[in-house]
């Protein structure tokens, strides 16, 4: 197994870059990070809509949550992959397909995290802000959200872990991510399948476990337990 690592480590980490597109672990982390970042504004909007007093905002948001959580991420990927080209006029590459699908998914899950965060702030805070004469928007901005966001930090990190795992689905549409590269290595080496796939698992494990521990440390430092019972399980699809 050591010589496997020795021969292929660079390929595994960055794919064919710079002689080709970026791949491997670097691609996985970049894709996940980028997707999560892009999802944040949408996630915030979703969370606010879900906790809004106005039905016109709350119902569509709730409907969207039930829809997206009720179907596999892979299905969203397939919809994007097969249909976006006919809508936009040109073929979407694998990276952008995965990115769009992940943003759709993460926005909904982040929205739920934001919602939990907002609902976790004691109701007296909102009341006293309004009693001072602050409008709803200002009360949210200056009083509720700052407190909510702080408690959401561990859940955010766990969502990052979920997203990293979700990027593996790119394999199915041919994205040169970590899993794809591993399979390429396997076809080249051919006789060491267990080792290759164990190494693949180990890579994900180091990445994800490391981040989970970081989230756990964050949770402890913030001095409060988050409301979700089991962070990685509550964070969303298991892909």
């Amino acid at each position: 197994m050591i010589d496997l690592i020795h021969t292929y480590w660079l390929y595994f980490l960055v794919g064919q870059y710079p002689q080709g597109p970026l791949g491997g672990v670097a691609l996985t982390v970049l894709l996940a990070g980028f997707a999560l970042l892009l999802s944040m504004p949408f996630g915030l909007a979703m969370g606010l809509a879900r906790t809004s007093g106005r039905r016109a905002l709350r119902w569509p948001a709730t409907g969207l949550v039930y829809l997206v959580r009720g179907i596999p991420l892979l299905l969203v990927v397939f919809w994007t992959y097969f249909f976006l080209p006919s809508v936009t006029g040109h073929k979407t590459d694998q990276f952008n397909t995965m990115l769009i699908a992940l943003v759709v998914f993460d926005s909904v899950y982040l929205g739920e995290i934001v919602r939990a965060g907002i609902q976790g702030v004691p109701s007296g805070q909102y009341e006293s802000a309004r009693a001072l004469g602050l409008g709803h928007g200002r009360a949210m901005r200056s009083v509720i959200l700052p407190q909510a966001l702080r408690s959401m930090l561990p859940s955010l990190v766990n969502q990052f872990v979920s997203t990293i795992k979700a990027t593996s689905l790119g394999y199915i549409i041919g994205l040169t991510d970590t899993s794809f590269i591993a399979t390429q290595i396997n076809t080249q080496v051919f006789t060491k399948a267990p080792q290759v796939y164990l190494l693949l698992s180990l890579t994900y494990f180091i990445l994800c476990f490391g981040l989970s521990r970081f989230a756990f440390a964050l949770e402890r430092r913030l001095g409060r337990r988050t409301s979700s019972p089991s962070p990685a399980a509550a964070a969303g699809p298991a892909a």
């Binding site: 795992k165 591993a182 698992s201 994900y204 476990f209 989970s212 298991a238 892909a239």
Partner: peptide
Amino acid sequence: NVPLLAHLL
């Protein structure tokens, strides 16, 4: 901490 896809593979 390992994605389902990797488990399947």
